[in-house]
């Protein structure tokens, strides 16, 4: 396996009861790549992201992040399920941005960003604070640092959430429909921040319905349906000349 591969999912399978949410899904993401996942509702996009971040356990297959097997430790011929503490250690290197922001409501914008570095990484408070201020500046919210989430618009909250994920200095950030809960006029301010992040070389897996973003920013696009990967490839190819008829139909539907 090449060192440039940051995420490798092999035959990932996940059931909820009898329902098959992921059916032998394969995915490969290289360092610095922006990989978009598209597909209809219920196709398993969120579930795949949650498996990468260990918010769900796999039933079959395996995922490597940074050449490290997610959820297990290999010793010779044995695979040991790792402890909760080890799971939390693996998660530190994977950022996640949620559809509904999920900022901590009892903390200001700045405190939201500092929380992880100080409490989890043990960074000195001062240093974390300075870095958080730089991050807030980068997402255009330097003047909002002492505001609580309830005092921010949806777009501003999502930008703080992105800054919070960046604050952990992860190898990879997962975005689960980051603009779906936003009013239309606020979508672009969040996409701008994500575009800036992409151009700085951050590896990103983005579940989105924003075809414009996928076309302009993504390197690769994966189309999922009913728990399966139907098609994956270079963004330009999948979006303009899809091989599968289902992909073409879906793209046409979301664009109109």
């Amino acid at each position: 396996m090449s060192n440039d591969i940051i995420v490798k999912a092999v035959d990932v399978t996940k059931h909820f009861g009898n329902f098959l949410a992921l059916d032998k899904v394969n995915l490969e993401v290289t360092r610095g790549e922006v990989s978009c996942i598209i597909g209809p509702s219920g196709s398993g996009k969120s579930t795949l992201l949650r498996c990468i971040n260990l918010l769900e356990r796999l039933d079959g297959g395996a995922i490597w992040v940074n050449n490290e097997l997610v959820g297990y430790r290999r010793e010779g011929d044995r695979l040991h399920e790792i402890s909760d503490v080890e799971i939390s250690q693996q998660r530190r290197r994977i950022g996640m941005v949620f559809q509904r922001f999920n900022l901590f409501p009892h903390m200001t914008a700045l405190e939201n960003i500092i929380e992880g570095p100080v409490q989890v990484l043990g960074e000195p408070a001062r240093q974390a604070r300075e870095r958080a201020e730089t991050l807030l500046e980068r997402v255009g919210l330097a003047d909002k640092k002492d505001h609580y989430p309830s005092e921010l618009s949806g777009g501003q909250q999502q930008r703080v959430a992105i800054a919070r994920a960046m604050g952990m200095q992860p190898d990879l950030i997962l975005f689960d429909e980051p603009t779906s809960a936003l009013d239309p006029e606020l979508v672009s301010e969040v996409l701008d921040v994500m575009r800036d992040l992409a151009s700085s070389g951050m590896t990103m897996i983005v579940v989105t319905h924003e075809m414009g973003f996928a076309r302009n920013v993504a390197n690769t696009v994966t189309f999922m349906e009913a728990g399966k990967v139907i098609e994956t490839g270079l963004a330009s190819e999948v979006l303009s000349t899809p091989k599968s008829a289902r992909t073409a139909e879906f793209i046409k539907a979301v664009q109109s």
């Binding site: 918010l55 530190r92 949620f98 992880g116």
Partner: peptide
């Protein structure tokens, strides 16, 4: 909200730290 638990986990908090820093204060 369950999103708070997930956000706390996503920044690598252990179960106890999540309860102490994020969940109980809310």
């Amino acid at each position: 909200d369950s999103g708070q638990y997930e956000a706390a986990r996503s920044i690598g908090m252990t179960h106890m730290k999540m309860l102490r820093r994020i969940v109980l204060p809310q």
